[in-house]
């Protein structure tokens, strides 16, 4: 028997006046499971436990949560990476309203994504085949387009906690730069104008929590730096 102590944030709005931590014990039989596997084992025993999950391989972004104090995806985080002293504490992503247990209301996060107009804009007529793009131009999108919208970064960001309605946040800004960097996009000026206020971009204080937690190894802080440079160059 190798028992893992798991503490999980519980809250059901229909029955609980306040959230609480519930303790479970899981026999891992010494296996280095993923955190999601542990949740599935618990769910089989206690069907009331709520969390999101879909792909179980780190590409859909459903199961972002806070594991022993750090945001990440439960499906690709192994126990050996996070468990300390035989204990695992699971909480919902910080800073967003909780719907139930580990399920947060992502509306604010999605609103900031939609705000940056996350789609290619090109006012020239489309050719009969694809628009050409050199491999070098395409390389500029690497490290940007892979974002899975899991919200691990934005919900680890103190600036987003403070101003989730005005600061776009690292995820939204990474996508803003993904379109600014795309050689096929012609809306650069409009995109920059839309971000040119004290909050949207400039609330980033370079804390870099986003970089530390991104499960895809992306670097929103660098993208934000590039947007700042473009905004400053645009202003001069």
């Amino acid at each position: 028997m190798s028992m893992l102590q798991v503490a999980i944030y519980r809250y059901n709005p229909e029955t609980d006046s306040a959230p609480y931590m519930q303790e479970y014990q899981v026999d891992t039989q010494g296996r280095d499971l993923m955190v999601l596997n542990v949740l599935e084992m618990l769910k089989a025993q206690d069907t009331t436990l709520a969390y999101r999950r879909s792909c179980r391989e780190g590409v859909c972004g459903s199961d972002g949560m806070n594991m022993n104090g750090k945001n990440g995806l439960a499906c690709i985080t192994s126990l050996s990476e996070v468990v300390k002293g035989g204990k695992l504490t699971l909480r919902p992503l910080p800073g967003l309203p909780v719907i139930r247990d580990l399920v947060v209301d992502m509306a604010l996060f999605y609103q900031q994504y939609e705000r940056i107009q996350p789609y290619l804009q090109n006012d020239e007529p489309a050719p009969a085949i694809e628009r050409l793009q050199s491999p070098e131009e395409r390389d500029k999108l690497d490290g940007l387009y892979e974002c899975i919208l899991c919200a691990c970064c934005s919900t680890a960001c103190p600036s987003f906690w403070w101003n989730p309605d005005k600061f776009v946040g690292p995820a939204g800004l990474l996508q803003a730069y993904r379109f600014l960097a795309d050689s096929r996009d012609t809306a650069t000026r409009e995109r920059l104008a839309d971000l040119e206020d004290p909050f949207s971009v400039f609330r980033c204080r370079g804390i870099m929590n986003c970089v530390a937690v991104c499960p895809k190894g992306l670097n929103p802080t660098r993208a934000i730096g590039k947007i700042r440079e473009m905004l400053l160059a645009d202003a001069t």
């Binding site: 090109n122 085949i129 694809e130 628009r131 050409l132 491999p135 395409r138 999108l141 795309d182």
Partner: peptide, 21 residues
């Protein structure tokens, strides 16, 4: 081909050959 070119026009970040295709 029509459907794939549409996706590209929508912004899908396809990998590229040296000639840009």
């Amino acid at each position: 081909p029509k459907a794939v070119f549409e996706l590209e026009h929508m912004g899908l970040p396809f990998s590229r050959f040296d000639n840009g295709r």
